[in-house]
Each structure stands twice: as C-alpha cells, then as structure tokens.
Nucleic acid binder design. Sequence first.
DNA 1: TTCGTGATAGAG
DNA 2: TCTATCACGAAG
Length: 191
Amino acid sequence: MRIGRRFFQRDPVVCARELAGCRLQWGKLSGVVVETEAYDGADDEACHTWFRPSARAFVAEHPPGAAYVYLNYGMHWMLNVLVKGKRQGFVLIRALEPLQGLDAMREARGVQEITQFCSGPGKLTRALGVNGSHHGRDLCADAAFGFHRHRNIEASASPRIGISRAVDFPWRFFVPGNPHVSGKKQKTGQG
DNA sequence: TTCGTGATAGAG
DNA sequence: TCTATCACGAAG
C-alpha cells in the first residue's frame, strides 16, 4: 500500500519512527527502510533549517513528501524526506535492506556483501543512484519513486549519529538486530 | 586514526 | 576572497 502525502503531514519524529519497516521504491530498485533519523526545523540545532537559508526556502517551496537531497563531505549524497505537519523538518534515510535490483546495487557499490550495499546514508544513495537531480522530487506523486507499507515492526530509538549539535535527542530509529543497520555498536539498543 | 572532496554561508 | 563546517566512508 502506497504511503501518501498525509503520512508526511505529521511530526517528523513520528514519521521517522513509522518509516522504519516501510519499503522504499526507487525505480527498479527497492529496499526496506531499517534506519532513519528525524530533524526538527523548530528546536533542533542539527537541522539544516537552523543554519541554512536554502533549507528554509526549500521547506517553504515544497510539499510534504518531497525529497531533500544534498551533498555532504564533497562526495556523499544524503536522502531526506520533507515533513510538514504542525512541526516541520526532515527524515534522513540512513539504511535499507535491499530487496530488488541486487545486481545493480553490487555494481554501483563495488562490493560483494549485501550488508554493505545500503548500510549507511552515503552507501544507499550510491547503491540506488540518488543524486542532486532528485532534489525536490515529489515522492508522493509516483509509485515508482516513493514509500510503501511493507513490514509492521517496532523500531528502537537512540541518539543520532555523526552530528555535533543537539546530540542528545533520541531521534534515530532502527530495526533492532537487522544486519543492514549502519555502524557497529549501534545495531542494538533499547526497545 | 586520517584523509578525500566540494557545496554552503558568513566573515573580511 | 577566505575559511569553517559538514546528517560519511574507505583505507591504514
């Protein structure tokens, strides 16, 4: 079942938690979302809207469910989804469990192990071919590029990874025990 | 642990 | 212009 725009007209933290277990379809490729992070435009100093005027403009000019894609460290594309409920922000897609297009992913990543295809935000964009051309794309308009209900799972929560501000918010959500979750020590945690 | 790589934004 | 910073990943 498709995930429509209303899903993203809620709190970013709720969206991040509920996106875990959903399937992301990206053309002929797909995977189950097993790790996400929420960024809240209002109180969260780690959110791009806090320090990037272009991010605030993006929020103003796009509908909920739009893809927010940017390049980090000069080489890694990050895939986010715009959320616009009472609170506005983003959900970062951090890891997928590959479903369709395994050969294409292996080719794009240049590694053999399936658990290395999409086990990190930079890895999954590389595996799927996400880049700046997708920035602003409406992920609620087209079944070929969007989210679908897949598994009913209870995500665990932990602090977010790789940020230097607002490090204490427990806004990272992941499927406990799933081998495609990024990091080493972060694969387990509270329920 | 270190380093590659480039967009962004603010300061000078 | 110049510089700091950055939601990463691979190699050493």
